[in-house]
């Protein structure tokens, strides 16, 4: 991650605000695919069998989701720090951006955790996960980029709470769906 951001710095220097925002979320997306994909793809068959004997499907997916959310939050914060070091920090409203990045990290990791479970059942590599996941995540990414624009300006945009509620609602939806659908992937 640090290497990627350093390369970005070499390539762009200090980018403009829009570019900064776009790059930031793109990096988050790829970090998420690489970090979260490991959660199911890297588990060996034997260990999955062991988990299967000790816990139910619901608890297992919930634990995975929770772990990945925390992991992704840490990743997001680290990359923000690195962005600030290399590419400059145009953020004016610190706390708002903190909230948005945490929410964004959560959304990304929830969706990709579940997709990695699907891709792992298909015994496929991360490429399949990217095919499955990118179309699903585009709407959320668009919303995130839109609302993170507000932290660079003094004007507060209208309809902000609506978008935040929508993102939160989508996150909840993903959790509920994962809880309902995972047991079907689990038994094999």
């Amino acid at each position: 991650m640090a290497a990627t951001i350093f390369v970005l710095y070499l390539a762009m220097g200090q980018p403009e605000i829009n570019v900064w925002n776009g790059l930031f979320w793109m990096i988050q997306l790829f970090v998420c695919v690489n970090a979260v994909a490991k959660s199911f793809l890297a588990e060996s068959r034997g260990r999955m069998l062991y988990f299967y004997t000790i816990v139910g499907g619901r608890h297992f997916i919930l634990a995975k989701l929770l772990f990945n959310v925390l992991l992704m939050m840490a990743m997001t914060l680290t990359s923000w720090l690195l962005f600030a070091v290399f590419l400059g920090n145009p953020v004016i409203h610190f706390w708002q951006f903190l909230g948005i990045t945490l929410l964004g990290g959560t959304s990304l990791s929830l969706v990709f955790t579940f997709l990695s479970a699907i891709a792992a059942r298909a015994q496929q590599n991360a490429a399949l996960m990217a095919i499955l996941g990118f179309p699903l995540i585009i709407p959320q990414l668009l919303l995130l980029m839109k609302i993170s624009n507000i932290v660079f300006a003094d004007v507060i945009q209208a309809g902000l709470t609506q978008i935040l509620l929508l993102l939160g609602g989508l996150d909840l939806l993903v959790i509920v769906l994962a809880m309902i659908l995972f047991p079907f992937l689990w038994k094999d």
């Binding site: 969706v111 059942r121 699903l136 709407p139 839109k146 079907f184």
Partner: peptide, 28 residues
Amino acid sequence: KKARISAVYNIFAYAMLFPSIWILPRLM
């Protein structure tokens, strides 16, 4: 396996997609 996994993906994708194509255009 194909039937089960693709059914899971179908439900998940539908549930994610339809809120976003109904709501997103109203916000932009």
